[in-house]
Nucleic acid binder design. Structure first.
Length: 339
DNA sequence: TAGGCCATCTGGTCCT
DNA sequence: AGGACCAGATGGCCTA
């Protein structure tokens, strides 16, 4: 039966996925298996990698591929390159290639994930226990680049709420809350920023930017229902945001995606009060730099003229912190909000 | 239980 | 031939 599986490739895929045959541990194969065993999915890997290996015969290694061409029987000869018969030796080599390719693919994905982890550490929000998903990390990174580029382009102190809104653009509610928590924004500050007259209605609420029309459309959160707090907030002062970023675009709309961050890097040495010497581009060269001591408590607007964060309102994201690998960036951004 | 997220396997394509 | 890259498929885990 096993020999039939060897000679019938059409049966292999199912066999590969649903059998748990024991595998002999000889030569390179054993070496590759050892590599596979390092991963967290050892069982799964060993299961899928151990197909059709039970009765391998090393004698087949010496068998030439073309030796069996005459054994096709009475079928008419076909033109074109001969399809080489899958001898057991070739099957074995192919399988080893596949195993090696799988290992490479795993390594590649691990590298990719490592890069994503590094990216997570650079974006404005990080949680040890609540890691941003891949897609959210990329979205936040994009928003972050956009926000910084906008700051560099305008050379002006950015509006705090606009900054946060830009960061949270298109993010899910949990990620939005995470980012808001990392920035230690609360509803009181948010409302202060918006000069909302009926702020008492939101005094106890957690930060939410779901009042944005485009996010309401995406998420249909209860906060976004007509008459809800967010609806009221939506009616209070999002004009500056809209004018700055071109209305209230659907995040995934072609118009929004077509926008590119304004690449306008200001150079050090400007003497204009509006054009402070920025060094953002340099700060990104040291992603692995040691953390700056004391940077944990860096807070946007915590003591600024806009009311600041009240200690009792600090969100309980104990496991989160702003990242210090690029603390200088935060220092300068922080300076924006404290000038 | 459905949906989101993820890791892994797999076959195809392109390049060296 | 072999490696890198990609996208689809699949199954596991977790959460609302």
């Amino acid at each position: 039966m096993l020999t039939r599986l060897f000679t019938d490739p059409s049966l292999l895929p199912d066999v590969q996925k649903y059998t748990g045959w024991a595998e002999d541990s000889e030569g390179d194969e054993a070496k590759i298996k050892d590599e596979d065993a390092e991963g967290p999915d050892d069982l799964d890997s060993s299961r899928t990698h151990s197909e059709h290996a039970g009765d391998d015969d090393e004698d087949d290694e010496g068998e030439e591929d073309e030796d069996c061409e005459d054994t096709e029987g009475d079928r008419p000869k076909k033109r074109g390159p001969k399809k080489r018969k899958m001898t057991q030796a070739r099957i074995e080599r192919s399988r080893l290639r596949r195993i090696k390719a799988n290992a490479r693919e795993r390594t590649r994905m691990h590298d990719l994930n490592s890069a994503l982890d590094n990216l997570r550490k650079v974006v404005p929000c990080y949680s040890k226990t609540q890691k941003l998903s891949k897609i959210e990390t990329l979205r936040l990174a994009k928003n972050y680049i956009w926000a910084l580029s906008e700051i560099l382009r305008s050379g002006k102190r950015p509006d705090l709420v606009s900054y946060v809104q830009t960061l949270c653009k298109g993010l899910s509610q949990p990620t939005t809350n995470l980012v808001a928590g990392c920035l230690q924004l609360n509803s009181r500050n948010f409302l202060t920023e918006q000069q909302c007259q009926d702020g008492a209605r939101y005094a106890s609420g957690s930060f939410s930017v779901h009042s944005y029309p485009y996010q309401c459309a995406r998420l249909s959160s209860p906060h976004c229902q007509p008459g809800s707090n967010s609806h009221a907030m939506r009616t209070h002062g999002y004009c500056s945001y809209d004018s700055l970023y071109g209305g209230s675009p659907e995040y995934n709309s072609p118009e929004y995606e077509a926008l590119s961050p304004p690449l306008c890097v200001k150079h050090a040495g400007s003497t204009s009060p509006e054009e402070k010497p920025y060094h953002y581009s340099m700060h990104y060269t040291g992603l692995a730099a040691p953390r700056a001591p004391g940077a944990h408590n860096l807070v946007f607007g915590s003591s600024g003229p806009r009311g600041g964060i009240h200690s009792e309102n600090v969100l309980p994201y104990h496991d989160m912190h702003l990242h210090h690998e690029r603390a200088p960036v935060y220092d300068e951004l922080n300076a924006f909000f404290h000038n």
